[in-house]
Structures are given as C-alpha cells and as structure tokens.
Amino acid sequence: MFKKILFATSATGASDHAARVAFNIAKSYQSHLNIFHVLGVPSRGYSQVVVDVKTKERVDVDEDYTAWVTEDIRTYYEKYLDESLNYTIDVAVGVPAREILRQAKILKPDLILLGGSTGDEGESVYKKSSLGSTLQKVAKSANCPVLFVNRPAASFWGGLSNIVFGTDFSKISDKAFDFAMKVAKTLDCELSVFHALDISALHAGKMLNQDEIEQQIRESLRKIRSRYEPRLKELKGYSMDVWEGIPFIEIVKYARDKQADLLIMAHHSRKISSEDIRLGGNVEQVIVRAGCPVISINK
C-alpha cells in the first residue's frame, strides 16, 4: 500500500503535525520513508548561493553544508527515528514545489506527504515570484497521491478506520475512488462516499427552492449508488451521502461528522486558480480546513 513515502518537510514547527502523521504511517505500515528537505531557494543570480529557508541567511551550499543540514534534520526528528523505522534523508536546493516533484520523479513513491504551509513564507519574495504555492503545485502535478496535513488538528492519527471519499463524478474522481477502495480494503476501513451539491456557484443569482434541491440530491444519490455501490459492497462497511451547500465546507463538516481519519478527493483543476491559497480551488480549501489528513489524487 504505502511501500515508499516521500515526506517533504521544512523541518520546522510548521511541519510538526505532518511529521507525526508521516512517522506514524511509516511505522504502522513498514514503509520506507524518505525525509526530504529543500534547504534553500536559489538566490543571487546565477551564483551557487541560496537562501536557507530556515535561517533566512545566505549560504553557499557545499558538501559540508548539506551534511550539516542533514544532521540537523536527524536531530530534529530524533524522537521518531528508531531502529524500527526504515528511512533516508535527502536535502536539495531549488524552488520547493519543483524539487519535491523532481524527487518524486526519481523516487516514484506511493505517497507524497506534505507539511503545512510554512507560515511567514507567504510574505517572502520567493513565494511571490512563483506561480501559486508549493501545496497547489504539488497537488496539481504529482504522479501519485499526495497527503496533506495542514492543521495540527488533522494530525492525530490513531490508525485508519473511517475514510471519507468526496466525489464530483469526474473521471479523475473515479481514479480517486479506485485508490480509496484500495486503501479501505487493504486497511480494512469503512468508506463513506460523499457528494456536495453546490448551491452557491452553480446557481448564482438564482435561488433553488428546497424541492428542486432535494430532487437533485436524490439524483446525485442515485448516481453514487450506480457508480460506486457495487464495489463498495466488497467492504466491511460503507455509507453514501449527498449534502447541499458550499462544497468544501460540506465536505469538511461531513468528515467531522463521520469522525473520518482520512479524506480522499480528486484534484483536477487545470490551472492553478489563484496565487493565494485562501482563494484556491475546492480541494485546496478542503486541505486547508480539514480536521483530518487529506489525500489528493490528480491522475
């Protein structure tokens, strides 16, 4: 299931909750964990000098420095790193999203695990110059499922028992469903299939009456049944629901209601919708708000 995990971390407090989840999964499922840190972003023109993302200082990256940073990471995660854990640590230099994707291209992990957005990074020039945040870029372009743990509240991982799968009936959602099924089956979890009927954007300017809404809810439920139920029966338990509202809010509410340990969704926005994560697309919104880890699948 999760044989190889790529855990991209800032090795700071901002990634602590993601780290808990990362080490937890790795230990629970005997995965190989690659702890990956982009230590610096290129700076000073063509030169080799980078700005260290942690210290904000300009540094020349040479072997000594990377060795030092690697050691620093090892110390930071000392409490997790025991003999039972199969791990490696890599550091790189570059634009974080790009380097994470590059590492994923080489490593071909089953899962990429991405920490929370690194707080003050939002104000820095490095972020402004790139199109959209690390989170959006990795979610859009990764070739494997990407697991996000944005809020500390999302990091309490006591093993998996309830999974929520949010669908919008797209092709990629079907792929995401395959993945959700695989996880649920392998880990023996309950799977709740959920669709949120968007009453905000879809009918902007025109308020639907409740009959119409409920009519559509029934239709969506029928769709879920025909599309997913035959396979859901393979699981020990499942449920199917459709709620109306603003999709990302409803999904987050639903997951909370179901006490989900994991949320799985398809990410298929063609363009990075906005440079500001707070205005991002549906999946980004869920990632930012969810009370449990979120896995996004884009292909």
Binding site: R44, G45, Y46, S47, V49, R58
Partner: peptide, 13 residues
C-alpha cells in the same frame, strides 16, 4: 542594477 554579472558576485553584494 544587476547586469554584467553584478547580481551573482557575493564580494560586491
């Protein structure tokens, strides 16, 4: 302000 190689030279930052 950074042409001609100026941008990349640490000594003259």
């Amino acid at each position: 302000g950074g042409g001609g190689g100026f941008n990349g030279i640490g000594l003259f930052r």
